[in-house]
């Protein structure tokens, strides 16, 4: 590949969708493989961010009025705000759980198991 080609080359929508799918898969792996409840929560955050990445990619590849589709970025702003609130509440629940049970291991938290 020569220099002019290299300077012009840019990623396609497929690249971004595949990367976002891989990030989602790694987040899913974190949820399935790890037994520490905080790491599980991090995996959930990773999956949320993978969805955000594909949303931004679609907004860039389907421009409205010459610029990126701004509505989706406003939507993403709301998603990030709600996610921050969700993390705060989730961590408060984890702290309360730790105070009650003294463990972070999901297999020890089985009082709701049938």
């Amino acid at each position: 590949m020569d220099i002019a080609n290299f300077a012009e080359a840019s990623a396609t929508l497929g690249h971004y969708l595949i990367v976002s799918g891989l990030l989602f898969g790694i987040g899913l792996m974190a949820v399935l493989l790890r037994r520490n409840i905080i790491i599980l929560f991090m995996g959930v955050e990773m999956m949320l961010n993978a969805a955000n990445l594909s949303l931004v990619a679609f907004s860039r590849f389907h421009p409205v009025g010459g610029g990126p589709a701004v509505d989706s970025q406003v939507f993403l702003f709301f998603i990030i705000t709600v996610a921050a609130a969700e993390v705060a509440i989730g961590l408060a629940i984890i702290v309360a759980l730790y105070r009650a049970k003294q463990t972070m291991h999901v297999e020890d938290l089985d009082s709701l198991r049938f």
């Binding site: 840019s10 590849f61 610029g67 701004v70 406003v74």
Partner: peptide
């Protein structure tokens, strides 16, 4: 899905102003 992104013509309005 394998096409590169279309060129943007924002006319000098920044991203933050639009949002």
């Amino acid at each position: 899905v394998w096409q590169t992104a279309p060129k943007l013509e924002t006319g000098g309005i920044s991203d933050v102003a639009r949002i």
